[in-house]
């Protein structure tokens, strides 16, 4: 069997980081890392502190964006968690909610998501209404589709300067990938 010619390899980010993304780090950073993640995915929870470490170690080098990729059929609370993060984001609290959700992953349920909303001091009644009305579901789904079209095949998937990172998610591996991308960008390769 042969691969027919119009298969396009999906190893590149199809939607560049834009104003609808949640982004941390310097806008002038030479390296942009985009994560497609699922708040109920144990591998994403394992990668979360690693990403935080790399961000702390490389503040001038690295800019980080998080996009949603909830696999709702296997992670029943992933979508509501993503929507809650967006509700927090609408109130400039995306990252605190992102951290809270990963830190409380083993317990995640719709009720626990609302505990996080309350704990972060967000207006629980207003957020509850927004979640019931799926106000942010469209944004979550747009993230998901952009991931599928970019070749995301599971979570977490990282893109570093637009190229899918196909190696592991240990501190050494992610730090090395970031440093290599920084070197490539400074040498123009």
């Amino acid at each position: 069997m042969t691969t027919t010619p119009f298969h396009v390899t999906g190893a590149r980010l199809t939607v560049p980081v834009n104003e609808s993304d949640h982004v941390r780090g310097s806008s002038g950073a030479p390296v942009t890392m985009v994560e497609y993640g699922d708040f109920q995915c144990p591998y994403c929870a394992a990668a979360y502190p690693v990403v935080e470490l790399v961000l702390n170690e490389r503040p001038e080098t690295l800019r980080f964006a998080y996009r949603h990729f909830p696999l709702a059929n296997v992670h029943p609370s992933a979508e509501i968690a993503a929507e809650a993060a967006e509700a927090a984001g609408a109130r400039q609290e995306f990252w605190p909610m992102h951290h809270w959700l990963f830190q409380h992953q083993p317990q995640l349920s719709p009720a626990v998501v609302m505990l996080g909303v309350a704990e972060l001091g967000l207006p629980a009644d207003a957020v509850q209404l927004e979640l019931a009305g799926h106000v942010y579901l469209d944004k979550v789904q747009r993230d998901f589709v952009s991931g599928v079209r970019s070749g995301v095949n599971g979570t977490p998937t990282f893109f570093i300067n637009g190229v899918r990172h196909d190696r592991g998610h240990s501190l050494d591996e992610l730090r090395f990938a970031v440093d290599s991308a920084a070197t490539d960008s400074s040498t123009g390769s």
């Binding site: 119009f6 298969h7 396009v8 999906g10 599928v148 079209r149 970019s150 070749g151 995301v152 095949n153």
Partner: peptide
């Protein structure tokens, strides 16, 4: 993944 399928 599914990107090749969607492209096709």
């Amino acid at each position: 993944g599914a990107d090749g399928i969607l492209n096709a």
